[in-house]
Write a protein that binds this DNA or RNA. Sequence first.
DNA 1: CTAAAGCCTGTAGCTACTACGGAGTCAACC
DNA 2: GGTTGACTCCGTAGTAGCTACAGGCTTTAG
Lengths: 128, 128
Amino acid sequence: MRISDLAKATGCHLETVRYYERIGLLPPPVRSKAGYRDYRDSDVERLRFVVRSRALGFSLEEIRSLLTLASRTELSCKQVDGVARTHLAQVEAKQRELAALATELRGMIETCHHDTRATCAILQSLAG
Amino acid sequence: MRISDLAKATGCHLETVRYYERIGLLPPPVRSKAGYRDYRDSDVERLRFVVRSRALGFSLEEIRSLLTLASRTELSCKQVDGVARTHLAQVEAKQRELAALATELRGMIETCHHDTRATCAILQSLAG
DNA sequence: CTAAAGCCTGTAGCTACTACGGAGTCAACC
DNA sequence: GGTTGACTCCGTAGTAGCTACAGGCTTTAG
């Protein structure tokens, strides 16, 4: 399986596949005689895991941890749970941050009466 | 006023001030005999505007637009309003995205029964 | 046989900073 | 007058997570 097939099978950009290999997130695949990358089904699985984790907002470092943890199948998944909970907490923190921003932006926009810029409530608010 | 005073007065990191100057967001200030930057009160105002806008999540390009729009005080502020509304829409879109992520993460975490990794619901969910 | 499509590597670009290294300058204290 | 320490200068490189080339090979379809 060539790199473009892997990309299609996972929904991952082709250049991103090479990038993940470069940073060690994907193992270097075997090469054809001409030097082309040749992927197996297990590579599709691994990359799907990465793509899905990225879609859930995990960082590449978190994904690296998850992949390592996942490979030790005989152990308990408490650490996996920990990574997921930590990430959820980060997402929730970001949510609170955005909620505060949205409130403030809405307040600014509502206060503005669309007269001249010299008296614009938005600009005044941004000026502090 | 030296660069460290400006940084203190605005809550902006000193290196960030130089960065903003380099990208043309702040005008190059006059220099002392020894080549030190010398800032006025108007620079404090402008940088405060930038810092506050950044805190509200505006991009540097949006802030560049806002600064240009703000300088034409005799015109209506409809364009300013447009920039603010567009930004609010982006924040709201991000909020929806995070809400979906959080829901999915919570589902994953709740389903996990903390047995071995081979049967870990989180890892299975990430595998797709 | 030829042309297009696909692959290779290496490097540069993106956002918004932050952090050096190495050198010059300024103020205060002794 | 000298020296110490804090400040400033500039240029460059690093951060995350890609994305987009350039220039050169290989494969495939007609």
